[in-house]
Design a binder for these strands. Structure first.
Lengths: 343, 343
DNA sequence: CTCTGTACGTCATTCGTATGACTATTGAGA
DNA sequence: TCTCAATAGTCATACGAATGACGTACAGAG
């Protein structure tokens, strides 16, 4: 007896069980549950089935549904590092956008998972997820993902032809350089992110281009790089600022800018009086540190929402909607960390 | 012709297709792919099947597998707000722990999704996820989740009897109060989080208990609350500190502590000379703001890893492993934001 | 009284994999 | 030569829902 019960509780409630309890056929239950009862099931019977189902605590088995229909409402989101506040924002926004379309989001952290490409391909081929948004991938990954590229949407891809959503890096750097040059800064340092991502390379290239348009040079000695680890970054920034060469410093990330603040403090320099600082991303911390940070804002929500929409459009075969690369504009948030250069 | 091709590409590659190409039966392919070939398939044939499969780009259909075996390797993680850096840490750690056991993680943001309980119940009943880790839920949610409680693991639950992992809040507050009292602070302010979560209530209770053990009182006038929104929090902190009553301030979250820094600055007060500040969570920002923040560190990785292990143990029916509540100790990170009170 | 149309349901098959039961082949031992 | 066991493989069915192809019943028309 007890064995009976325990075995019964292992099995889930099926549409068949509901059908039996309600005195109808399994087909009818299916019709009702999937909302296709119109014209095939009377309203009274529909209600009765619905009641029986909720009384038994029935939910359709997703695997069976997917197997039968081939439609699956889960998308994956692959980002380099969820711990970075910016990607947290992207994640939340993507989740909201996906949910409003009835999709769930599965997380992939590409920097903590060496095999992520294989896992993703397996998941997509195995129909565990319908598609994937891939943020800031590198060229090798992108090539390996070629086999399933119609189910992938790239954001800030290495190879820009593969990108579905791209950011207007050049425009942003133009704004940064104009802003600083407008404040009479001519010696601008560059604290780069030590990660082999396209976005960082493109920023530096744009930076140099913009400088030369203003008749200035990007002195390699004024450039250094660091990881996002606080100590490492502070050390790098200390070395750069210790030379007392630059009057302004661009940082590839707000976290690096925060490290620059620490470095300045340890050197007895004041931000912004002795050195103006510009960051990138506009995470919440930019307004928390003192002085508040001038930084390039990426509209994380817009990017995530666009990405979800574009991916879902692509998955449902709407080529027309999803064709081409969408470029998202960035804006420079001017705050207290940038002031005119001392003459 | 074109129609043929497009239709063919819609269907995925099945084990049957591989079987046909390799000249074996579907059963054999299944045996090989699921690693149960031992003693049933010769090594030569096994290799051949494997090659054929990879040549065709075959991955087993997860839905069919799940439908057949009832085993599903996806767990959900429900947290209040992924954007908060602390939950980001939890998320990453959980993802890593889950992956090492072959599981994937599906994200649920409970503060942005009013219907999350229903969605979760549907997902679990519908076998889209095997189980769920629920972080910082409230009592109503927990009650509604009762129907599927054997597939849920609670972390910091409202109703502590339901909790699978709990934090040693009382111990942490003891350390905080001892630390401040040891520095001769007798008038300690309290900047609380304005969210109806058990953890915040328990902190304040522990705070009062600890104070009275030291012969001190918690003056209600020295307590206020705020949301994690920077402006709101700064305003609340400004009002509290503006009274010039307290010499130290405990904050329910590092973000609130950061707001307190801003408030102090705007009031012309200095941290820590005029007011010592203690935070909670020890997010990266605690070391970025100046002076570095004394704060209670929650071992996010430990919590997440324990939670995953306990949940998976629970799911596989290992009652013995999963029984009882595990309490995780917290540590007070003493940094530069707390100094002896002025006499 | 038969015919037709409509409203309501059911039947039977399908999705792709896993697996217990079964068959065929080979070699060794008696 | 016959049996037994081990090895290598196949067959057939089940998992649970969805759905096109079928009834069935009844009202109204002819």
């Amino acid at each position: 007896m007890a064995r009976q019960v325990s075995r019964a509780s292992k099995r889930s409630i099926t549409s068949f069980a509901v059908a039996e309890a309600a005195g109808v056929s399994q087909s009818t239950v299916s019709l009702v549950m999937s909302g296709k009862a119109e014209g095939r099931v009377s309203e009274a019977k529909r209600q009765h089935v619905l009641e029986t189902a909720s009384k038994l605590g029935y939910s359709p088995n997703a695997s069976a549904q997917i197997l039968r229909t081939g439609v699956l409402k889960v998308i994956a989101l692959a980002v380099p590092n969820v711990q970075q506040p910016f990607f947290g924002q992207v994640l939340v926004a993507a989740e909201v956008a996906a949910r409003s379309r009835g999709y769930s989001v599965l997380l992939i952290d590409t920097s903590n998972d060496a095999e992520w490409v294989e896992r993703l391909i397996g998941m997509i081929r195995g129909r565990l997820v319908a598609g994937c948004i891939v943020y800031a991938s590198d060229d090798a990954d992108e090539r390996r993902l070629g086999a399933i590229r119609d189910r992938i949407l790239f954001v800030e891809a290495e190879n820009s032809r593969r990108s579905g959503i791209d950011l207007d890096i050049a425009g942003a750097m133009g704004a940064v350089v104009s802003h600083l040059v407008g404040l009479n800064h001519t010696r601008i340092g560059y604290l780069a992110a030590r990660y082999p991502k396209a976005t960082f390379r493109r920023r530096y290239e744009a930076f140099r281009d913009q400088l030369s348009q203003h008749g200035l040079d990007a002195d390699p000695a004024w450039r250094t790089d660091a990881t996002f680890d606080l100590e490492t970054a502070t050390a790098a920034a200390t070395e750069l600022l210790g030379q007392r060469q630059v009057t302004a410093l661009f940082c590839d990330d707000d976290l690096l800018a925060a490290a620059a603040y620490r470095a300045a403090r340890s050197l007895g320099l004041s931000v912004p009086q002795d050195v103006s600082v510009v960051g990138f991303n506009d995470i919440e911390m930019a307004r928390i540190i003192h002085p508040e940070l001038t930084t390039v804002a990426i509209p994380a929500e817009t990017v995530a929402t666009l990405a979800v929409e574009k991916l879902l459009g692509q998955l449902s075969g709407g080529r027309s909607l999803s064709a081409g690369t969408r470029v998202v504009p960035l804006t420079l948030q001017v705050r207290a960390s940038t002031v005119p250069a001392r003459s």
